[in-house]
Amino acid sequence: MIQFFKIFELPRSSTMAGKIDALYDFVFWVSMISFLIIVIGMVYFVWRYRRRGVTPEPTPYITGHTPTEVSVAVVLFIIVMAIFYWGWVDYTEIITSKPGSLEINVTGRQWLWEFEYTNGRKTVNEALVPKGQPVKLIMGSADVLHSFYVPDFRLKQDVVPGAYTKLDFTAIQTGEHQVFCAEYCGTAHSKMLAKLKVVEPEEYQKWQKTWEVEQSLGVQPAQAAESSESRPTGIENPAAPRHGAAPELPAERGKALFTAKGCTACHSVTGQILVGPSLKGVFGHEVDLNDDSRITADENYIRESLTDPQLKVVKGFQPVMPTYKGTLKDEEINDLVAYIKSLGN
């Protein structure tokens, strides 16, 4: 029997997979025991007290037994609270980003997954990640809702247009892991598949180095097909010219945009206070807002400050910044976030 159920087991390929499975198993056995108590009781009563003749047998007058009902309720309450707490503890670990994570930008669009590394390397429906190193996916959607789901990791996060969501994981098994889109997104929802390839760290370094060298030499290897032209917007932007075939870092594109879009008029990157706060060393730190609350300047805060600048204004500044909603494309927002991130944190 146990062997039979093994064929339904998925590999445990992330640090969380084993923990999530442990709680799954606990709930499974709690459920199994409760189910058996009810069903065995039911079947036994049906057999033991079945009506034998046409006329019913006399039955006793029992209207309930409050102590039994209360004890069932109390025992159950304790069990479900334990399940809740266990689930919550593991969940907080799932959502906590590890310092020094390898960051990858992920864009879901009908019906493919795009990946962009911090060195500017882009891939479609396939991503390489090193084993044993924490990875943070910073995810956005170009159109409708999607959900990034890796069953081997037991992890999933919806991808929402107009905001960033993130998914943290540390892979512990090399090999190819299936990525599904788990949130219904239209015609080819079931074909929105990708592969996460987990490799040894050395192999990952080599994979990136080879590409970087090729790019700097202007080589356009066979990989060109997977790495370019899925992002048509960067080229038409005069402020971000391509420097030959040299790799374009998202942060560099962001720096060019920062000047081209006039951000420099109000925001320094040196610590000097102009009309707006300086952006030096802001990312990842808490800032005081003018309603006396505090917020951590993460990807979503930077994004929101571009699209809805009046919403959370830094303490001591006037709400005078115009919105860039509709002016900046999603890809450009990604680049600006990368630039602001690069200003030290």
């Binding site: 969380m16 923990k19 999530i20 709680l23 799954y24 709930v27 499974f28 709690v30 459920s31 409760s34 189910f35 009810i38 069903v39 479900v80 399940i83 809740f84 266990w86 689930g87 919550w88 503890v89 593991d90 969940y91 799932i94 959900s147 789901y149 069953p151 037991r154 992890l155 999933k156 788990a182 949130e183």
Partner: peptide, 23 residues
């Protein structure tokens, strides 16, 4: 219904739901 109710516990537990949600 007992099976239906008990399997709800899996989905109400946060970490397990991260895996099982939308499956």
């Amino acid at each position: 219904f007992t099976i239906g109710g008990l399997t709800g516990l899996f989905l109400a537990a946060l970490s397990v739901d991260v895996h099982l949600h939308d499956t």
